[in-house]
Nucleic acid binder design. Sequence first.
DNA 1: ACGCTTCCGTACGCTAACGTACACAGCATC
DNA 2: GATGCTGTGTACGTTAGCGTACGGAAGCGT
Lengths: 240, 240
Amino acid sequence: MSLQHDPRQNHLLAALALDEYKRLADNLERIELKLGDSLVESGQMMRHVYFPTDCIVSLLCVMEDGDSTEIGVVGGEGIVGISLFMGGETTPSRAIVQSAGTAYRLKGQLLKDEFYRAGPLQGLLLRYTQALLTQMAQTAVCNRHHSLDQQLCRWLLLSLDRLPTNELVMTQELIANMLGVRREGVTESAGKLQRAGLISYHRGRISILDRPGLEARVCECYGVVKKEYNRLLSYHRPGL
Amino acid sequence: MSLQHDPRQNHLLAALALDEYKRLADNLERIELKLGDSLVESGQMMRHVYFPTDCIVSLLCVMEDGDSTEIGVVGGEGIVGISLFMGGETTPSRAIVQSAGTAYRLKGQLLKDEFYRAGPLQGLLLRYTQALLTQMAQTAVCNRHHSLDQQLCRWLLLSLDRLPTNELVMTQELIANMLGVRREGVTESAGKLQRAGLISYHRGRISILDRPGLEARVCECYGVVKKEYNRLLSYHRPGL
DNA sequence: ACGCTTCCGTACGCTAACGTACACAGCATC
DNA sequence: GATGCTGTGTACGTTAGCGTACGGAAGCGT
């Protein structure tokens, strides 16, 4: 198995003890995800959970009129489909691929079986869920109190943390959907960042030029979330 | 034990099988909560979890500059202190009593012990957590897309659902804190509702006069959350 | 080379909510 | 019954973001 395509590039899978991982490994199905692919639809039963390695998935809350807002983002540190083991089976939100890449999927029932063994995986998934919860809470506050400029910075940094490169493929239209604002608003905020030399934007490709510069502009929300992820998920990799 | 003060007025405790409940019952400590009491402080270890019966607790996300936003509300249907069994032990948010009343508290370790028996209580708490998650997500969307008028309606209805009466004791100042807006904004929105004959406001006491009227004005967020709570937590009371 | 589509930039009036300021009415205290 | 505090109403200029509209540039297909 090449290092390029190891399921254990996903942090949750990486944190499992070897025997635990082995029980799942044969059932992990590698899958290539394209921008815009839908992994979870509102209210629909899921067949699988997804462990991203180098892709990013957005959790979106969509309203009747079609307006939407991103309530969380999942990358190699997490899993898509928590409602399976939380017991609800479905959620009222959607999960959309925000950055193309690879993920490994697992039949829902197999994850549930492993979860209810009440081994280390259970604690791991619960702590991850709590981290996600923090992310959602902070997003709610950020939506309320901070400027679009700051929110854009937060969004870029959260994405960047989950990407291997400094470039993300993403139109302003899509970012606007995620943040739940107008496309023109994103154009303006991104323009400021570009004029400040922090990013370079070109037809659906954003290159981050000055990450410290972004961090200087971002609101506290980014830091709070990141710190909580580190606190809850800074496990060692046993059995490696 | 008078019906007035039965811990099983809390829906989660009510949903337990009798033997499961009996293991906890002796350790449930009745406690009277006053408006403004703090049950959980950001980042601090909790000694207890709280099962409200007729009080309401707000989960608040507080920022460095003191601005805050409510990210969820807990009443007789829930529990305060989920981070104990989720494994994080602490959270970055606060829990403040929004409406005075009674709750039963339990030593954190005892709840964890029971949770890790992996019995029905575990599933119950996890489903409750998922419901709370939905509430937080919907709050984030609502903050973004809906007018203060609608959000006030949502807030009133969510509170009302958790109260035995039609009256809530709450100044506009406090509501403003919860919603993360100016006090004057609340005065204006509440004024509209009052002129429309839906509520009557008088120095920290709100009486709801026309609940259907509120429901007609509220945004979809209220319905989404309520539906999800019903779906996830509409259990029968076994062993009664 | 041409047209078409996608993506980005800009402009303008509009509105909800903000910050600030102040007035007044209930209620308690002394 | 003067004083003070708390809670509510109102007013006014300011601003961030909205809705809408339009123009242009980059890339794609033929």
